[in-house]
Each structure stands twice: as C-alpha cells, then as structure tokens.
Amino acid sequence: MHLSPDDIIFWQYGIIKLNATIVFTWVLMLVLTLGAKLITRNLTGQLNRSRWQNLLEIIVTSIEQQIKSIGLRHPRRYIGFLGSLFLFVACANLFTLFPGYEPPTGSLSTTLALALCVFLAVPIYGIYQKGIFNYLASYTEPVWMMLPFNIIGELSRTLALAVRLFGNVMSGSMIMAILLVISPYIFPLVMTALGLLTGMVQAYIFFVLAAVYIAAATQTSAGQSKPVANSSVQLHSPTKK
C-alpha cells in the first residue's frame, strides 16, 4: 500500500520522474481545460443559454460571491487564482469515485506546492494592492516586536495549509483501504460518500483560507472591509486533523 501517489512512479530519469501525482494532475488539468473549452465554445450573452453554460455560470458566480463576501472588493482580480485552487482541489477529491484513481491532493508534495503558491500569492497581491513598504510594514503591526511572530505565523500557516489538506485526503484513502480489508461491502460505500463530502469541505476550506490570507494582506487601514472573522473557526471544525 502506498502512503502517497508520489511513490507510484511510471518513468524516471535521474531526479526527473513521472509519478502518479503528476500524471493524475495532468489528467485533471486536461479534463478541466477541455471541459471549459467545450462548454465555453458556444457561449452566448443572450437570455437563452445552455444548461452547461448555466452550470459554469453558477460555479463562477458562486466563487465570485464567496470571494466578495470574504472581503476582497475586486473579486475578478483574484478569481483566477482562488477559483483554480478550489476547482483543482474539489475535482481532485471528487474523482476518487473512479477506480484506480489516486488523488493528487493525497500527496504532500501537491498540497505543499499549493500552499507555496498561496504563500507567494499573498505578498504579491499585498504589494500590488498596498505597495511594498506598506506591505512590509504590516509585519510590524501592531508593534515592531511582533515581526518575528508574524513571520513565523506566515510560515506556519502555509505549512498548516499543506498538511491539513494532505492529512485529510491521505487519511481518507488509508481508512478506505483498511475498511476494504475488514468489511469490503458496506463500509467502503459509506466512507466513499463521506470522503466526497470531506473532499468538498477541504476544497472549500483551502479556498477560503487562501482568500482570507490574501484579504488580510491586501486590506488597508481605512476603507477596506475586514475579512470574515469566523473563517478561521471553520477551519478547525472539520473532523480529521
């Protein structure tokens, strides 16, 4: 039994290798891109539109509303990054329905890569919104003595973001494998349904946390609404940590 899809290697040349994480990520990318391309091929700006266009519009506008409700005033500026995070994680977890599929989010390398992207996106959006000096000055708030703590907090939350997603997905896969051995008929079905729910919740949590981090980095002292305070509370409510 593999603890991570990184261990499933299809091809390797030196340090360059093609493992299941990368391959299934490409599959996901291909499916998402082709699906988007096929559906948006016949988009219309009129009142009458196709069901698939309606579905995509619901997804996109829901993401946009969520970003806006978190406190980012220009949601379209962030929807590319944050929406892709949500869709990638959600699809990676939903595709566990297919036999033989190994979710890339069950790899700590993938979750760490996503967390690193968030880690880099936060200062980039913060500097873009506030300027580099104002952004760097935000690490000294409320007093300069908090600077090391803020830096530690920045690193730790990135690590927590990666480990949380990895732990949830990996634990779900492990539990599923164990239950298949113990009781191969009933419990795996229930746990699969529970895993779908958990996967969607984890995708939402990852998306919301990234949005909150970016909102915290881009908020100014005046005129910018505060990010949703209870978002962090929701982080700890889900079960398996």
């Binding site: 990184d6 290798k17 493992n19 994480t21 990368i22 990520t25 490409w26 990318m29 892709s84 995070l85 990638f88 890339p104 790899s107 390398s109 993938t110 760490l112 890569a113 996503l114 690193l116 992207c117």
Partner: peptide, 9 residues
C-alpha cells in the same frame, strides 16, 4: 514533484 505541481498549478 513539488516544483512540477507548482508549474502545473
């Protein structure tokens, strides 16, 4: 894999 996933993302 981390680097590849960053590029992929």
């Amino acid at each position: 894999t981390v680097g590849a996933q960053v590029l992929n993302f």
